[in-house]
Write a protein that binds this DNA or RNA. Structure first.
Lengths: 227, 227
DNA sequence: ATAAAACCTTACATCAGGTGTAAGTTCAAA
DNA sequence: TTTGAACTTACACCTGATGTAAGGTTTTAT
């Protein structure tokens, strides 16, 4: 069994090391953040299975960090803060935090919540999030609006690359690599046809986004506001 | 927007009506349990989107109820109890409860947790739970051990009927109805072959259960202890 | 022990849906 | 208005799911 990795984000060194050793003693692999310049990317570098996050931090509040994390990944976030304020709790959960706990924490309760959240996320690591939908990377099952459909493999792969590069353009080459592998000759036409097919499927599903061509560069996912 | 249905299970009439009206005032449709003979099936009759459950109840403890509910359905359960005991909390979460809150409750916090749990379950209504795995009823995507596979439609349908009748035998007729529709002539052989196929796929996936024939009656899902 | 019924297995042909190919048309920038 | 990029459509092919067929194994009753 591989240890689950928890990333501890807490600016007070004493509390930080205490938390870290407590978690390590309970079977987790722990990484801590001690550089508070660009916390979200620091966190993601650790590739954690869960993030334990304080609210009061230098530079950037835990709320903002939480929002960014949830935007860029689907890592579960447990908020652990000394501010016992219902507003904070509401705020945190709105931003997608998975648990909200207040200090001082009961060790057993914290551990229990953590293992609970981890259990809840188990197996969901293959789901990538798009605007208003989820995509299973393994089966290309698409979850939208309380229903689900299976995308044809090629369409799924294209959507996957596009989602992994949210807000950026993806070159035809990159898409081709993903779909047929980097060794294959890139067949502009086959790619084109599959792109068209994906667009048609997405439109048929009333998805809140489309694939948009960026002339001379590639393609990207764009959200459509309506609905 | 259709109101979400919450089923309140609380033996103290005063608290019960208070909870019910509070929830109704906040946009939920509420059903209450006042017959405590066979609570789990009483609850399921309501087809709730969420169950709010007390621990101290006549006849059957909330823990047992929770276990049975989770066994027979995948309805989310929020435990609301006056016993503020870490053991209870551990116990409840082990049994699959989704939240554990203690009385006296802060109204806003309870509502927040409820809406949070409901959000978490959104769209998962098409997932049915088996021993150690999940099955998407629409696509027959099977989630097990952190990975996912798509079952062929027929195998998926068979597994679905079997899961919907956990612990009971399902007749060939019922299975056939599910797979080909009740109007079609039941082709014993085709059914047999598809059953064999399902068994093989399940074995190949190391699933912790098998399809077992009950001579002269039908088939049922049986858990296999190993692994 | 043996026969009959219930249940299971395997191989093969068929069919549907995903895919690449080909031959075009439309669009947008210079 | 010209040119290359982006798109569309139809069709043929191939893979994988399905039903069919023919036979094997297990269980139960006599």
């Amino acid at each position: 069994m591989i240890l689950k990795r928890i990333c501890v984000v807490e600016d007070e060194p004493l509390v930080r090391t205490e938390l870290a050793s407590m978690l390590e003693n309970n079977g987790y692999s722990v990484g801590v953040i001690d550089n508070f310049d660009d916390v979200p990317s620091e966190i993601l570098k650790h590739e954690p299975d869960l993030v334990l996050l304080d609210i009061n931090l230098p530079n950037m509040s835990g709320f903002q960090i939480c929002r960014e994390l949830k935007n860029k990944s689907s890592v579960p976030v447990v908020i652990l803060t000394s501010r016992d304020d219902l507003k904070d709790e509401l705020n945190a959960l709105e931003l997608g935090a998975d648990e909200f706990m207040t200090k001082p924490y009961r060790k057993e309760r914290l551990l229990l919540r953590i293992s609970n959240v981890l259990k809840r996320y188990e197996g969901r690591s293959n789901l990538i999030e798009g605007p208003g939908f989820l995509l299973d990377k393994l089966t290309y099952t698409l979850y939208i609006d309380g229903t689900s459909v299976i995308l044809p493999k090629n369409q799924g792969k294209i959507l996957e690359v596009l989602l992994q590069n949210r807000d950026e353009e993806v070159s035809r080459q990159e898409i081709s690599d993903k779909v047929w592998g980097t060794s294959e000759f890139i067949d502009e036409n086959a790619l084109q046809v599959n792109l068209t097919r994906l667009k048609k499927t997405m439109a048929g599903l009333n998805m809140p986004c489309t694939v948009q061509a960026v002339r001379g560069v590639g393609y990207k996912i764009v959200e459509t506001e309506e609905r």
